[in-house]
């Protein structure tokens, strides 16, 4: 019973906060709701017995991405003020499209009989994860490091002040 309550709460927080992110008039409030949504997702990961992913979610999404976003909002301050309309003209179509997508996707994933297996999660997932990352997935791992370097250099080039 307890997991279901926790699941329900996390799902509610996640989806509620996500709705607030996309509808709030103040973009900075959206950013803080985004943090809440990320935290909700992290608790879903804990329920799914993936504590490592949960902690990484907090570390990267809240500790890095959300803070970067808040910073960017502060640097482009004029946009943050409340009097600007944050919604574009075709929002109603967007809402209908998103709702339609949810109905289709939700109906499909909910009605499908997934071939669930009953294996249990190994005790120490992190060790296995590390070994897999450096054996099977070593090439993507290395490419990811190149990607991070490229992003780092690129954002410095682009974000640097004019000379």
């Amino acid at each position: 019973m307890v997991p279901i309550i926790i699941f329900g709460l996390s799902a509610l927080i996640t989806l509620g906060a996500a709705l607030a992110v996309v509808t709030n008039k103040n973009i900075l409030h959206s950013a803080f709701y985004l943090v809440l949504a990320f935290a909700g997702v992290a608790s879903l990961y804990v329920l799914l017995e993936a504590p490592f992913i949960a902690v990484v979610q907090v570390l990267i999404y809240i500790g890095a991405i959300a803070i970067l976003i808040v910073f960017a909002i502060m640097l482009t301050r004029r946009i943050g003020s409340d009097d600007l309309i944050q919604r574009n003209a075709q929002w109603i179509w967007a809402a209908m499209g998103a709702a339609g997508l949810f109905l289709v996707l939700g109906w499909i994933v909910y009605s499908v009989n997934w071939p669930v297996v009953t294996q249990i999660v190994p005790e120490d997932t992190i060790t296995i994860l590390g070994q897999e990352l450096l054996s099977t997935y070593v090439i993507p791992f290395e490419v990811a490091s190149v990607l991070l370097l490229a992003a780092l250099v690129g954002s410095i080039i682009i974000g640097r002040e004019r000379e």
């Binding site: 992110v21 996309v22 973009i27 482009t76 946009i79 919604r87 997508l101 939700g106």
Partner: peptide, 21 residues
């Protein structure tokens, strides 16, 4: 839940005027 989150995100993408949004 994932499908819901995805659709909400898509709505945000389609309806926001602000690049950060």
């Amino acid at each position: 839940v994932a499908a819901g989150l995805f659709s909400i995100g898509l709505y945000g993408v389609l309806s926001r005027r602000n690049a950060i949004g």
